[in-house]
Amino acid sequence: MTSRVQPIQCIGCPVGCGGEVVLDGDRVVEMRGFTCEKGEAYAAEEVVAPKRMVTTTVRVHGGALHFLPVVSDGPVPKEAIFDCVRLLRGIEVTAPIETGRVIVADALGLGVDFKAARAIAVASDGLRPA
């Protein structure tokens, strides 16, 4: 198998090293241009199995707000971001919601839960927002 070179922009600190990872298949053979171990570790994961935290909103019924922000409780493989968002688009919940409530457990079998990022109380007063 021939080796290939993948450029990776490090996001670990404000220096923002632009390095390269040399790969043989999925195996990292060489790192160039990174200036710390943290950066090399980031690049190694980023080049093989990039992951991201995912945030979006789900619809709330009977709440002081119509939408509840939710966040994954761990990083999600990058290629699964859209599937997670699509899954959450179909979710509806009812107020009250407390912070940290699991809205979707083990989303798509990825081992990641989506949790309420905030509390939402039941809609109350007669002066509801328009």
Binding site: K78, I81, F82, R86, R89
Partner: peptide
Amino acid sequence: RAGLEIREDIDA
């Protein structure tokens, strides 16, 4: 917002 299809053509 609802009814909008997620784009499939983005290489995430």
